[in-house]
Design a protein around this nucleic acid. Structure first.
Lengths: 180, 180
DNA sequence: GAGAGTCGGTTGGATATGGCAACCTAGTGG
DNA sequence: CCACTAGGTTGCCATATCCAACCGACTCTC
């Protein structure tokens, strides 16, 4: 598996190095509270108001600051800060495409592209439970509107909640104490 | 907090009657900017720092205020506020299980349970790109650690990004101007 | 019947973050 | 010279968030 640049430690380190003069950033540093969990760790990176929308636009093929600002609706200063933290987390890379004047584009790394399933799951949920009619239609190669099913890679069966067994490896953070 | 006008709450209620009928919902009034999009609409409901962690715990079987506060690490006042907005959005319901003293539990609605794929996708991403070793192991019924694949329901093929065709139905919000 | 503990919150105050418009720099085009 | 573009930065203010402390209505234990 590829490099894993996104550990909170790495972020904290690169932030301390003081590369940019921007936003003191909400770097995770520590999450002393709460269950240790990959979900929480992921949310530390993409769990704010704009991050996933930025990544949506990058997946759509909009790579420039003004495009992203326009299509997400994020305030420009927030966008600047978020792009920096996403870069520090290894989710996007900033690429200069013009020397003079200096101009930049933002692209997804492998880690960033790998967020597509998260966004698709969220889109599916939003379409089902929130919006009236989908403002964006995603079609699969087969020509039909995309409807996704999640299956287990090992056995090929559809994943149902009842079929999952959870096991906590963190002491003091047991799961399901009262399975009500 | 401006109570979110019972958008999806109505859906859950009318779900029984409404066959395949979708959402008498209206797109959240309060996102005047940015591309209209089910992802953004979803994030308006579960896109803050704590919402998905709360839902994670409810999926784990922890239904009481103190449990949720402890396992998520959310400050109690934030938790109160988030539970209220999630309730207003129809994602959780608040259930009294004791009259005297008054005591309450929080449970997921169908809409809330339907967020499991989002959380699983996020867990997969976090395990791959953020954490060193998964603090929680999810096993499928087949006995193997769960690894998920997303497939298209129509054709059964694995969904790859290159196979997706996007089509915006919102005027002025076209997609992919430079598919770089 | 005194004291401690449980549960589901509120309250107050400090701090961090977000939103907005205006501004800046270094160019290009006319 | 002027207008315009891209990619931000700055200042100001409003709101959200964090945290610890507190509270009310019980129950449990001694």
């Amino acid at each position: 598996m590829a490099a894993r640049p996104a550990t909170p430690a790495a972020i904290a380190a690169s932030d301390a190095a003081g590369a940019g003069a921007v936003a003191p950033a909400r770097v995770p540093a520590e999450r002393p509270r709460g269950r240790p969990c990959a979900v929480a760790a992921g949310l530390d990176i993409v769990g704010d108001r704009w991050a996933l929308l930025v990544i949506r636009e990058l997946l759509f093929g909009n790579h420039r600051f003004d495009e992203i600002a326009h299509y997400t609706g994020a305030p420009r200063d927030r966008l600047t800060a978020r792009l920096r933290t996403l870069e520090a987390a290894g989710v996007v890379i900033r690429r200069q495409y013009s020397d003079r004047p200096p101009r930049f584009e933002y692209h997804l790394t492998d880690a960033g592209r790998d967020l597509a399933p998260v966004i698709n799951a969220l889109r599916a949920w939003g379409e089902r439970w929130v919006v009236e009619s989908p403002p964006i239609v995603v079609r699969h190669a087969c020509g039909q509107p995309l409807e996704t099913v999640t299956i287990c890679r090992h056995c090929g069966q559809k994943v149902r909640r009842a079929d999952l067994k959870l096991e906590s490896r963190a002491e003091g953070w047991e799961i399901v104490r009262h399975p009500r």
